[in-house]
Write a protein that binds this DNA or RNA. Structure first.
Lengths: 347, 347
DNA sequence: TTGAAAGCGCTAACAA
DNA sequence: TTGTTAGCGCTTTCAA
């Protein structure tokens, strides 16, 4: 790989001049010189050495995607279709902006922080992070951060320097409210709620579900909380166990399309008909699942996952480049899309 | 972030000494000094600056995962569940070995090469790459490369320096042969082959399918090649169109679980019963799809995707660290797993 | 056993 | 308009 120094030597000029035309700082360079350098650059197909450039400029061009996992995840987090779609959007945006994506995945926040700092990442994308982890990151890392689907406490959020943190979220509560109300409108009264966690996003969706129930004067019972176990060893058994409980209910709102489609299958295997005996509403609208892998097609709460990823990345890059974020939070919409997994129970 | 220089100053010693104990080159350092430095290092939670270290050592600790896409892909390549699972395995292995994963995704091989060289990646993982692209990479990049599921021509492969290239593959031909033979054994005679491409892996699988047919004395007709269009705009329409042709056939072997499950649904929507009217065999055995999202559960050709990814990464890292690869090719096994999507047609 | 100093490739302040 | 040079943080050779 040819260096600037070598180019300068061959062209018999200084490295400064070469460097200047590389960076388009050509106000003070004569046209002929520009031309000469440019031609040579093209000819030798010069590619800058990122490492050297970064060291000199104390930056890295790296955007870190931080995924803190739990030890007992049912499979690698990259296999979660929601994560895949989000990362797809992020990767596209990051690449198009001339940055590079580095994944920081671990169940150990200290390890993640070490990897972030050792690379001097220019900015961070934090996925649904818990308060204490966010605080630990912030303690060591004072650069732009965009959190995604994160419900941070006011106290933690306030620790962050103003306009160094923005959160991109979803109207989770409202989305679940709409889904549940939709079911109620179709005549359902015994409606279960399925999730595999009880915090963050799931908690907010649960709230929306509860509110819809309560607004319709329907009493909630803990028996309607279908908490599934999603680790590799337990998922199938858990789905089967819940499928038995499903007979007590006419509908279930699920916190993901993936779980909805899996649970739907488990129910059918247990002799229930969908949607005649039991209706399903999913969440996220992962098209491949909700409309191509699930049968019947899944009625679900749509969100623009890829768009959210791109927005998060672009917002972060804007902050890195010194543009002030337009606010500390962006909440994206949901929209219920009706397909075939809900029965009308009104006579 | 504290630097070695600053540490040396505070401890009143040279940077060399500090650097030496950081790297465990302690043969020539007194125990007291080691102790003193170590304690200080822990206390200030020193994290090395990768950029500086890499510049000094002319390396990067970066493993590049190269995914050359085609412009008209139906969605971001990270959303392909096969890719997700593979990258999951790779990410784990790379991280555990103390390396960092960087994704080089683009439909433009020149752009990919530029990104690789600008970062001075220590090694490359090439996914199902075409001959000419592989050749172009090799022309600019002379470091360890592990290709995955790549059928490189002898000429191209020979251009690579010995023990700088190893391929990790699958017995694609045999896997498809087994799947097809299994169907034949169950009394099927009119068997279609479904894929969305005709090169590389798909080509080999097609060969296995053909060979099984021919070994059983069954004549092949081009009408049995179900070539689907998988771009976002065309996939559903294509699936529907093929579902009509499906009536002419009693079984179909598919080159992925994803397509199998989608096509299976399309067929059912078109009034066919599975497996009574039409049987399916998938490929890859993505558990979430084959056994949790697909109904009936999918009989499929199993391969250990995550294991393949880890093997590829570990092989590459071995090469980077100077260990000679044990061979230029590793072919992994397949195994047919019987589930519920194939009917027995023998009386 | 420890330290001085050059050098990795590039940028940028400053001088000419 | 162009060039000199210091310096980014770290490694490593060589000398002390």
């Amino acid at each position: 790989m040819i260096t600037i120094k070598e180019i300068a030597r061959q062209l018999d000029m200084s490295t400064t001049t070469v460097s200047n035309v590389i960076h388009g700082k050509t106000k003070e360079v004569s046209p002929e010189t520009i031309e000469r350098v440019q031609r040579f650059l093209d000819q030798v197909e010069y590619v800058p050495n990122m490492t050297a450039r970064n060291l000199a400029q104390n930056k890295s061009k790296i955007i870190g995607a931080v995924l803190k996992t739990t030890e007992d995840r049912y499979s690698h987090i990259l296999m979660d279709p929601f994560v895949s779609e989000m990362l797809g959007g992020i990767e596209t945006a990051v690449r198009e902006a001339g940055y590079f994506l580095m994944l920081y995945i671990s169940d150990d926040i200290a390890e993640i922080i070490e990897r972030i700092t050792t690379w001097n990442a220019d900015g961070l994308l934090l996925f649904w992070m818990m308060d204490d982890d966010a605080a630990r990151v912030h303690k060591k890392y004072r650069k732009p951060v965009v959190s995604i689907d994160t419900y941070m406490s006011r106290e933690t959020a306030e620790q962050f320097d103003q306009d160094l943190l923005v959160n991109i979220g979803l109207e989770d509560e409202q989305g679940a409210y709409d889904a549940t109300s939709y079911l109620i409108g179709k005549g359902h009264r015994k409606i279960a709620f399925l999730s595999d966690k009880k915090d963050g996003v799931d908690q907010m969706r649960f709230r929306g579900y509860r509110r819809a129930l309560s607004d319709a004067g329907i009493e909630y019972s803990d028996r309607y909380y279908f908490l599934m176990r999603s680790t590799r060893d337990e998922i199938d058994e858990s789905l089967d166990r819940l499928a038995e409980k499903a007979r007590k209910v006419t509908a279930v709102v699920c916190t993901s399309d993936m779980f909805a489609a899996m649970f739907l299958n488990a129910c059918i295997r247990h002799g229930l008909r969908v949607p005649e005996d039991i209706s399903f509403v999913g969440f996220d609208d992962i098209t491949n699942i909700s409309s191509r892998l699930c049968r019947p097609r899944l009625t679900t709460v749509h969100q623009d996952i890829g768009g959210k990823g791109m927005l998060a990345a672009n917002t972060l890059i804007g902050m890195i480049q010194g543009r002030n974020p337009s606010g500390s939070e962006i909440i994206m919409n949901t929209r219920l899309v009706e397909r075939e997994s809900v029965a009308d129970r009104r006579q």
